[in-house]
Design a protein around this nucleic acid. Structure first.
Lengths: 125, 125
DNA sequence: AAAATACCTTACGTATAGGTTAGTTTCAAC
DNA sequence: GTTGAAACTAACCTATACGTAAGGTATTTT
């Protein structure tokens, strides 16, 4: 079965296109907890799924700390009810942040453009 | 004359609303080079003007390194010709970065919104 | 058996922009 | 002549997300 497939760090590194170092780093921060066969980390499909979540969330701008919080909640409530609500809140908050950031960027863009004009005028003299 | 006014670190700290530490930090990075009266840093109006430039540029998203580069050019060419051109390029580049950033944010916003919808649907069941 | 590969560890480095702590010098006032 | 404020200094701390160096162990291939 697919669900029985096991993975090592280098395998996942290649498959998910992240460095081995990053994977071990996520473990060191408690974001994944693969089994060990001696020293070697052995990831099952759930561990792999967690990695995928991590990568997705990172792309969306969440910090590892935030992601860990979310995953920890997931551990407490595998039925996914609590943390779905929680995720909604986190997402809403992130959206708010992003809209805010956009406003700021727009403001800076305006400033820079006017600054650019001023300098351009100066250069003409 | 106004141009003869001299300032100490604590004075400028209050006037410009930045910490004393920050001002000394800028000096340590070579962004300003105030005179000394013994140990005490003495800023003249030009030094003060440099601080203002630093603060302005920081608000517009330039790194201290970038700002130093610009100010160093200014030192070489006080006539302002070279570094105005240079500033124009830097500003254009920054504008480009910002537009880029905006696109990315918009993309992430879309993703987050659809993710939000998915979760909301899941919660209804 | 030796070499090559895979995997691991600890520990320090990188970048950014200072904050914090603690202790020191300087100088004027009493 | 000592106290106290004002200014200074050095050095360590913060947060974020790993990269890198240097070396150890274990397994696989030849």
């Amino acid at each position: 079965m697919l669900k029985d497939t096991l993975y090592t760090v280098p395998q996942l590194s290649k498959e998910l296109d992240i460095t081995e170092r990053a994977i071990r780093f996520y473990e060191s921060k408690g974001l994944v907890k693969p089994n060990r066969a001696g020293n070697t980390r052995i990831f099952n499909y759930k561990d792999r799924a967690r990695l995928l979540i991590i990568l997705r969330a990172k792309k969306l701008g969440f910090s590892l700390k935030d992601i860990k919080t979310y995953l920890d909640l997931y551990e407490v409530d595998p039925s996914q009810k609590i943390q779905s609500k929680n995720a909604l809140e986190a997402i809403s908050y992130r959206l708010f942040q992003l809209e805010d950031q956009k406003k700021e960027i727009n403001f800076i863009i305006k400033e820079l453009k006017s600054l650019k004009n001023d300098i351009a005028k100066t250069l003409k003299h």
